[in-house]
Nucleic acid binder design. Structure first.
Lengths: 328, 328
DNA sequence: CTGAAAGCGCTTACAG
DNA sequence: CTGAAAGCGCTTACAG
């Protein structure tokens, strides 16, 4: 029960070998005779010894830690993403230092812990970094990958869904079905996800000379619900509502239901994300599935296998349309 | 752009002081003349120096890291909890090493990273530990606090909502309103939260000689939705449905809505957790609010200020009933 | 295959 | 107030 935990030296003493040898036993690829390895492992087991990752990180200049910063949002999509990141990183032997932030732009002091602990890379989901922070990170030689965000002035990697193209595909579907009274409810307008989805959707219809209605939401259920309700009450009952994410679409859906508008017969609704909730039996929302697993894999890849790339890589992955009960 | 990051030695050289002095500048309480402090700070700023937390952790035997293990569940309650934990811990100068698990009982290998990095304590939310793991943790002198779980045989601290009492209060409300046809939909029956809520609820009615209906759910929306739908279709339309958590209650709520049962007039519904979703305008679910912030505070307190307590402390905090639109 | 030694970047008695 | 030195627990050339 004393304070200090047991070290390689303790094991060495009992095993009658040097501390170096104990270390070698726990270093894959180091040459140790089968006999000593067995003995050391035995004693280690007995003493419940595990190499100290801090000391190892210090000497190897490699900590096996990754920093993950995530914005405090209501969107369950990112919770699923978080789960996937931690599991995949662990499988690769990495630990995750986690920070939750409320800022759209991650602040310096939120990154400081990451720097102090010498993380090998930083993943930022659903938020941005100031270019000052990015510069600092570069100076410290710590790679960053933005997940589902990008910014043209930011010198870092980014992985996201090809939001523009996805929205275009959705627009195409809507157009070909013959709908002309179309509403898009935005997310937070300062996010690249919302802007791109809006752009892809609008551009398509602009080219066709069709005017669509834009409602400014903020990625929350409440906002979308009230926006939709207000619109119906003001006499506008569109044929199509496309929400910038699933939560937005679900808010609209519930408002429509309350107004006894039949879905998909009178109005069709399309979301974006394919969160688990969108397949709940009472919603069965048609939506665009982001290729989450692929996005996570690519992010980790970019961060870890190619850490020294200075020239930023911007990856945009496709997804696919999932038709459920809110489209025909 | 070289590999090594800059160290106290580098700062010392430029500031014409010893490395010890640089260290002292970054140690609160150490005595340094105002003049040297200023100079060192200046150079440090210029070089972008920050003390290496790994080295500091190694020498001080104090890492300022806490391990947080969380079960991969659908319940948004725990996402809110996660956010609160990371923010409060950061405010106290702690970093969070995060692990997501799919196991009801956290496994040894999921804890290993925590051990290797010498975390100062471990928080386990919504899951259990095997007694073997707990023993190992004790041997390594690492305190553990269970959040919203407890187990009588487990020698560790735990903080949870007083689920038994909360359920009793709800039962009392239901009873006094005169309802007699009552359904309880459980959560996962191997969780202490579900068991306690069921126990508190049933015990009250048993004492009154009233039989209630138990439906075995699993804390998911889908299960609860289909359970409720099935019940209605089999001809049983109860006056009260109490769900073991909000998601469960919401699943029941949607099923009832679909069957055109008027809420709260024909059937009232009560949930548990007070997740953000429960206050969405189309739900406005009446529910029991867990005192989340207090629970988080107490957990951190127990873990950090009193780490050497061997005798486990089991804290049960009250919450309060929130009446919204699904009760009268 | 193995040990002694240097060193990762810190903190902290110990002198002065 | 400040510097030299020891030491936290490791890894890894360097010899043998």
């Amino acid at each position: 029960m004393e304070k200090r935990s047991i070290s390689a030296k303790d094991v060495a003493k009992l095993a009658n070998v040097s501390q170096s040898t104990v270390s070698r036993v726990f270093t894959t690829g180091a040459s140790v005779s089968e006999k000593t390895r067995k003995k050391v492992l035995e004693i280690a087991e007995e003493l419940n010894y595990r190499p100290n990752a801090l000391a190892r990180g210090l000497i190897k200049q490699k900590t096996n830690m990754v920093g993950l910063a995530m914005k405090d949002i209501q969107n369950p999509f990112y919770h699923e993403v978080l789960g996937m990141f931690t599991q995949k990183l662990r499988a690769k032997g990495y630990s995750v230092l986690f920070v939750y932030t409320e800022n759209e732009e991650i602040q310096q002091d939120e990154i400081n812990h990451f720097l102090e602990y010498n993380v090998e890379g930083i993943i930022v989901t659903d938020a941005l970094l100031s270019s000052k922070v990015v510069t600092k990170l570069h100076d410290n030689n710590i790679p960053v990958t933005l997940f589902n965000r990008y910014h043209k002035d930011l010198e870092c990697n980014s992985v996201s869904c090809d939001n523009i193209n996805a929205a275009k595909e959705i627009a195409k579907y809507v157009y070909e079905k013959g709908y002309r009274d179309i509403v898009f409810i935005t997310g937070k307008t300062n996010t690249s996800t919302s802007r791109d989805r809006q752009k892809g959707f609008m551009d398509f219809f602009n080219q066709k000379g069709i005017q669509i209605t834009i409602l400014e939401g903020d990625y929350t259920y409440d906002k979308s619900y009230y926006l939709t309700k207000g619109m119906i009450e003001s006499g506008h009952q569109p044929e199509v509502i496309f929400g910038a994410n699933d939560i937005t679409a679900i808010g609209a859906l519930d408002a429509l239901k309350e107004k006894n508008i039949s879905i998909p017969d009178e109005t069709i609704i399309i979301g974006f994300d394919n969160i688990k909730m969108s397949s709940w039996p009472s919603y069965m929302l048609s939506t665009w599935a982001q290729p989450m697993e692929k996005m996570v894999d690519e992010t980790i890849n970019l961060l870890l296998t190619d850490p020294k790339t200075i020239n930023k890589k911007v990856l945009k992955l496709n997804g696919y349309f999932i038709h459920r009960n809110t489209t025909k």
